[in-house]
Amino acid sequence: MKLAKIAALVGVAVLSIGPAAAYPDRPVTIVVPFPAGGATDTTARLMGGKMQELLGQPVVIDNKPGATGAVGATGVAQAKPDGYTLMVASIGTYAVNPFLQKGLKYDPQKDFDLITVAVRTPNVLVANPNFPVNSVGELVEYMKKNPGKVSFASSGSGSSDHLTAALFMQRTGTNGVHIPYKGGAPAIADLIGGHVNVSFQNLGAIINHVKAGKLKALAVSSEARVPLMPDLPTLGEAGFKEVVVYSWQGAAAPKGLPADVRAKVNEAAVGALNSPDVKTKFNELGFEVVANSNEEFAKFLGDELARWKQVIADGNITAE
């Protein structure tokens, strides 16, 4: 009995000396700083489900919503960097909050070990079917003739679709009225009802409405055309090459993961994202799997932060 106790203690001691060898030896938690059921949550669950198989330990999703992910992300930034607390968060949490939230308690570049960009999805420029424009060119022309008259619905101040619209207007030299909503759904509802004119919305959120003729799609903000809507031109084709925008989700961990744990987490995350069944599912939902390296994510985040800082400054989009 006593011997067993000592053996157990020694075991614990050995484990705590060399945690990397054993990682993971208990369940891994992925914090999702958004409510269950949204895009970020879906990403984490699809990825986490597969990571569970690859890591051989349960992966638990913990939703800690609030302040575009700031509440959950602050918690993760302060968690122990042992690989048992991970996070899947959105473009807003990583690349927009620093410019819009006063007193933000985390720094996306300094407080996290970035793992990988998980998935991305472009925004589609959609209009009410009765709105008298049928292409991006016509929209720009219409907006120039009617400055400040075209209404742009967004899923909220500082959301990816709001910023896409801001970038679009800055690059095309036009201006419209920004009409923010609490989330994408009410914005799409008013767009279908004809109470607002146009909006940039995530591909997955509008594809069925476009197919049913309730909305008309003018262009997509991706680099190349998207497989789900092959007839839809990109904004680049329409002459606005700078307006390539994705709404994305990325995985990260608290700063200071041991190198081998970090490698293992990245391997599992990337492996999960690239596994054929997970990939197919993401594609059906309108997401494109990215699955890259720690360094690639870090470079990408730097670019995104620089770009949105500029757009927010130029567009006078400030919180106060």
Binding site: A36, G37, G38, T42, L46, K281
Partner: peptide, 11 residues
């Protein structure tokens, strides 16, 4: 919204 989330996961 949650129910829509559940349906989306089912494709």
């Amino acid at each position: 919204a949650l129910m829509i989330g559940a349906l989306i996961v089912h494709g």
